[in-house]
């Protein structure tokens, strides 16, 4: 297994505009998630919340390389993917609160946000549950010659599920435009991945003839560069890819997972937060390249904070679905 430090570093040709956009998109995800945490702590949000804080560079780097009509599938830790693919925070918060205005009319919740308009085939609460769906979407793209690619996000916990290897085999046999993205945040719920994952991660792809690469998941420019490369080759009809991005989940498995010292140290958390933070590092890079300055970055943060505040207010004020909705949409 390549560690993040050893991962292929690719300096992307990032224009100033794109650099700012990558930064802003990461800030949007982080501040969205901070609001989720707050909603949860204030007991305004029912159910579970799995935060993406710390992993923002992966969703943003990947989705910025995609078209609107490209497909993604997401996970229980999926808010970042949905936002990065174009979902609006107000309707996302509404879904998280079970409101009618939500993306799934309140029937899906945090772990099931789906949106055809942005190519989001749905977040999935079965670990690796969407690997087949993402592969099938790639089959459609190929069969109907649609020029779309499909990106399947999953955590390293999904490496334990057999279906992943079934679809990698299928994707190579049928040369499908699908990219399997493993976000290795090191912890499969409450267990370090080395206790659950034998052998090498990257060769799980190469064994099936899937083009495989690893990337530093904390470096949004590197992720973007890798994504561009893999998306282009998929669009050219060169088949599937497997991207392993090492990253870190700053918070617990879910918001209720507060005392974590039995499975990881505070010192380890602190090191990632201070030295490897994707937003901080991208901000510093933008300043060092004289693309922007600290004041402008602060302005972005303030704007996003306002955006998220308004979105939360919208969701809190939005009505619940009427109970007559309960048996609607079971069948099409």
């Amino acid at each position: 297994m390549k560690t993040a430090e050893e991962a292929i570093k690719t300096e992307a040709a990032v224009s100033p505009e794109l650099g700012i956009r990558l930064y802003r998109q990461m800030v949007r995800i982080r501040l969205f998630e901070e609001q989720v945490n707050e909603l949860y702590m204030r007991a305004l949000m029912p159910g579970l919340a799995h935060l993406y804080i710390g992993e923002e560079a992966i969703a943003v780097g990947l989705c910025e390389a995609l078209k609107k009509t490209d497909y993604i599938t997401s996970t229980h830790r999926g808010h970042g993917h949905c936002l990065a693919k174009g979902a609006e925070p107000d309707r996302m918060f509404a879904e998280l609160l079970g409101k009618e205005a939500g993306y799934c009319r309140g029937k899906g919740g945090s772990m099931h946000i789906a949106d055809p308009a942005t190519g989001n085939l749905g977040a999935n609460a079965i670990v690796c549950g969407s690997a087949g769906i993402a592969t099938g979407a790639a089959l459609t793209a190929k069969r109907l010659k649609q020029d779309n690619v499909s990106v399947c996000f999953f955590g390293e916990g999904a490496l334990g599920q057999g279906v992943l290897y079934e679809v990698m085999n299928l994707a190579t046999l049928f040369k499908l435009p699908v990219i399997y993205v493993c976000e290795n945040n090191f912890y499969t719920e409450y267990t370090h991945y080395t206790e659950t994952t034998a052998g090498d991660i990257l060769t799980r792809g190469t064994a099936f003839g899937v083009h495989s690469e690893s990337v530093d998941g904390q470096d949004v420019r590197a992720v973007y560069a890798a994504a561009n490369r893999l998306v282009s080759r998929a669009r050219r009809g060169e088949g599937p890819a497997f991207l392993v991005a090492n990253t870190y989940r700053y918070t617990g498995h879910h918001v209720g997972d507060i005392n974590r010292e039995y499975y990881r140290s505070k010192q380890e958390e602190q090191e990632w937060k201070t030295k490897r933070d994707p937003i901080k590092n991208m901000g510093e890079w933008l300043v060092s390249q004289k693309i922007t300055d600290a004041a402008a970055l602060k302005k972005i943060e303030d704007e996003v904070r306002q955006e998220m505040k308004a979105a939360v207010e919208f969701a809190i004020a939005a009505p619940y679905p009427s109970v007559e909705e309960v048996d609607q949409d079971v069948y099409a």
Binding site: Y71, T73, G132, I133, A138, L144, E166, N169, L170, L173
Partner: peptide
């Protein structure tokens, strides 16, 4: 397909969602 019932059934779900 290969002998991968879960894999190709899942592929069917995704293909059905997207236009086949």
């Amino acid at each position: 397909t290969p002998i991968s019932e879960q894999g190709f059934t899942g592929m069917g779900v995704g293909a059905a969602m997207t236009g086949l």
